[in-house]
Computed example of a mutant assay.
Amino acid sequence: MKRIFGLGLFILMIGLLSACSDDNSSKEPASKPASEPATGSAGDDIFQKSCITCHSSGDITGGQVKLDSTKIHADFQKKEDLYSFVEKKMPKSAPGSLSKEQYEAVVIYLWDQKE
Rank of each mutant, 00 (worst) to 15 (best):
D44I: 05
T70Y: 15
Y109R: 07
S31R: 13
W111M: 04
S93E: 08
K32N: 13
K49N: 09
D44T: 10
I108N: 15
D68I: 04
A34Q: 13
K89I: 07
L7P: 00
Q77G: 07
Q102I: 00
N24S: 06
P37M: 07
I11R: 04
F47Y: 00
D44M: 12
A19M: 10
I60D: 04
D44Y: 13
S25L: 02
G15F: 07
I46N: 03
K100Y: 02
Q48P: 03
S69Q: 06
H73V: 09
S56D: 06
A42Y: 01
S50D: 05
S93F: 07
K92Y: 09
E104P: 04
E36L: 13
L98H: 07
I11A: 12
F10C: 05
Y83W: 13
S50G: 02
D59I: 10
S97N: 09
N24V: 10
L16E: 09
A74P: 08
T39W: 01
D75I: 13
Q102M: 08
V86Y: 05
L17S: 07
I46D: 00
G96L: 06
F10Q: 02
M13G: 01
K89G: 08
L17F: 06
L98C: 02
S69D: 11
T39V: 01
Y103M: 04
K27Q: 10
I72S: 06
G58D: 05
C51K: 03
T70W: 07
G43F: 03
I108H: 14
K49F: 07
C51A: 05
S56A: 09
S21C: 00
K79L: 13
A94P: 03
D45A: 13
F85I: 00
K71N: 08
D75S: 14
E101G: 12
Q102G: 03
G8P: 03
S93H: 03
G40H: 03
S69G: 06
L67F: 05
S99Y: 11
P91F: 06
